[in-house]
Amino acid sequence: MEMTIMGKYQTLVIRPDSELDQHAAEKIRVGADKLLRKTGLKNVAFDMRRVRFMDSSGIGVIMGRYRTVCAIGGNVAVFGMSPYVERLISMSGIREIVIIAERLQDALEEVAGIC
């Protein structure tokens, strides 16, 4: 997993590795919340381009980050999904609470409310 701070957009970009299961989700959860607290960033964007496998733990970690930043008026975006990841996301209903984007730039502009 990699995390990048995009200061201009007040956004933490999280890029999970290829297998987003409970094992990976737990690491993202711990790492991301620590960085969010430390930096005070408001928004999170999940870069799903590397994700080949995901289960409900992936849905849970996205949902959880939404809860974290929603409390401070931030947004969550998810972008670069494969059709399989998109299918799981659609089943879960988190489409209604997070921003779905195709590319990084769209995701950043939408979470920061620049469009």
Partner: peptide, 14 residues
Amino acid sequence: EDERSGMGFTIMET
């Protein structure tokens, strides 16, 4: 209280 979506059984069924 954990970050669970409650989707596991539904995914298995689907």
